[in-house]
Amino acid sequence: MTDSPLIPKEEIPEARHPFAEAWEMFRRNHAAMVALVVLILIILAAIVGPYLYPVDPFDMVWAPFSPPGADGFLLGTDYLGRDLLAALIHGARVSIVIGLAAAVVSVVIGVTVGALAGFYRGWVEELLMRITEFFQVLPTLLFSMVIVALFGASLPMITFAIGVVSWTAVARITRSEFLRIRELEYVTASRASGAKNGKLMFRVILPNALPPIIVQAALMVGSAILFEAGLSFLGLTDPNVVSWGQVIGSNRQYILDASFTVTIPGLAIFVTVLCISLVGDGLNDALNPKLRQR
C-alpha cells in the first residue's frame, strides 16, 4: 500500500459505530440509567424469582389479608390467603412477556406498513394510510376487549389484541422517516449502485430510520403492560396465569379493608412502566440528539 501524502499517519481515529456514541449519551442521563438498573432487576426477578422463591401463587398458604411482613410473608396474603410476593414474581413474567411480545407484534406490523407506504408512495401509500387511520380511530380498549372476548383469553390472543390496536403510531413514524430518508442522496447512491428495492427499504433506509422506532417500541412495552393490566383487571385474561392486573382486579372489593393487596401490584405496574418510560426518554435523547434542545 502506498502512503498517502495527504493524510498524516497519526490522525487515524478509532472506528466508532454511531450506536456507541448513543450509549455514551445514554450513560450520562442519570434518571435513565437508574431506571435501566431497576428494570434489569425486575426482569431478573421475573426470570430467576420462581426458582429462588418457589411458592405457587395459586396456593392458599395462610390466612387471608395477612399484612406485609407479618407471619413470614414479605408482602402479605390476598383475600384467598395466597402469597402476594409469589403473585408479583409470577405476574412479572406475564406482564413483561406480554409487554415485549405486543411491542414486537406492533413493530412488525407498523414497520411493514410504514415502510411500504413511505417507500412506494402513490396508491400504496393512500391505501395503507387509510387502513392505518381506520385502526387509529377505533376505541382501542374496546376493540381489544372484543377480540379477546370473541377468540378467547389466552396469552397469545391478548398479545395479538394489544399489538393490533397499537401499531398505528409505529406505522406513522416509520412512514415519515421513510419519506424523509428516501430523498437523501445516499439512498439515490445505493440505487445508482444497483441496489434492489428490498435492499433499499430494509438494508439502507430502515437502519437509518430505526432511532425513533426504537424509542417508540420502548414506550410501547410500557403501554402494553398497562393495557394488559387493564384487560386482566376487567377479567379478560387467562385464569390459569397470574398477572399484576389480575391481582388488582380480584382484590378490588377489599381495597378499603386491605389496601395493600391492591396497592402492591399497582406499585409494581407503576414502577415498571415508569422505568420503561424513563429508559425510552433516555433512548430518545441519546438517539435523536438534535431534538434535545427543546
Partner: peptide
C-alpha cells in the same frame, strides 16, 4: 454507469463503514 454526488455529507450512508460503502456496488452487481 456510475454517479458521483454533490454533497459528500449526505451521499454516504452514515451507518456503514467506509469499506462497506465502497463495496456496495460490488455487493449489488
Amino acid at each position: 454507469m456510475q454517479f458521483i454526488f454533490q454533497d459528500p455529507y449526505s451521499s454516504l450512508n452514515p451507518r456503514l463503514r467506509a469499506e462497506q460503502i465502497v463495496r456496495e456496488p460490488l455487493d449489488s452487481l
